[in-house]
Design a protein around this nucleic acid. Structure first.
Length: 183
DNA sequence: ACCCCGATCGTA
DNA sequence: ACGATCGGGGTT
């Protein structure tokens, strides 16, 4: 069973990502995304909760694009948007519940110490493309999320860029900067 | 085969 | 607040 408080520098496991999507999105604030050598504190997330959420890509059932959302929690869901950007999500909830958390911002812990604020910018910097769809963050040696005991204050707001489901406060945004040592 | 629009970004 | 941008998902 996942117990966040007891360990530090612990890779988040499938048990964590199988939790309710809102809980995962909220708890991911302050966790560290480790991506092909880069590390970044997650500063902004959004929850997309499945067939009852009209803004969710899986709201109208399984398609080629969203198929991974129906699979194991902890898998990546990468999609292409606006003809020019990619967005990185992490699948949540047990198999069959098509939900995910969109990663919208990370504070890099390595040079150039940029705050990658925005899902498109995040993927552009980390060179995330469709080839990074369906990676297992709970077992990959290159891509994972870990708890380093960082806690950030955050607020909740409506999600960005959607037409339906704006009544839900399912966006989580850090209200403070994580202090990064720049030499 | 094709139409239409988007979970964005950058500038104003 | 808004225009640029255009690939490709979903449906024909």
């Amino acid at each position: 069973m996942f117990t966040k408080e007891r360990f530090t520098n612990m890779r988040l496991d499938r048990t964590f990502f199988e939790q309710p999507t809102l809980k995962v999105a909220e708890t991911l604030i302050g966790q560290v995304l480790c991506w092909n050598g880069y590390r970044g504190v997650i500063t902004e997330t959004e929850a997309y909760t499945g067939i009852n959420d009209p803004a969710c890509h899986a709201a109208r059932g399984k398609t080629l694009r969203n198929a991974v959302m129906f699979e194991n929690a902890g898998l990546t869901y990468v999609y292409f948007i606006y003809g020019m950007y990619y967005c990185l999500n992490i699948v949540t909830e047990p198999i069959g519940i098509a939900a995910a958390v969109l990663l919208r911002g990370i504070q890099l812990l390595d040079a150039p110490y940029t705050h990658l604020n925005g899902p498109g910018k995040l993927c552009r910097f980390l060179q995330i493309t469709r080839e990074h769809n369906h990676l297992d963050l709970t077992s990959s040696p290159q891509y994972w999320v870990e708890d380093q005991g960082i806690t950030l204050n955050y607020k909740v707001t409506p999600r960005i860029g959607i037409r339906q489901g704006q009544e839900h406060l399912w966006r989580f945004v850090a209200t403070e900067n994580y202090p990064v040592q720049i030499l």
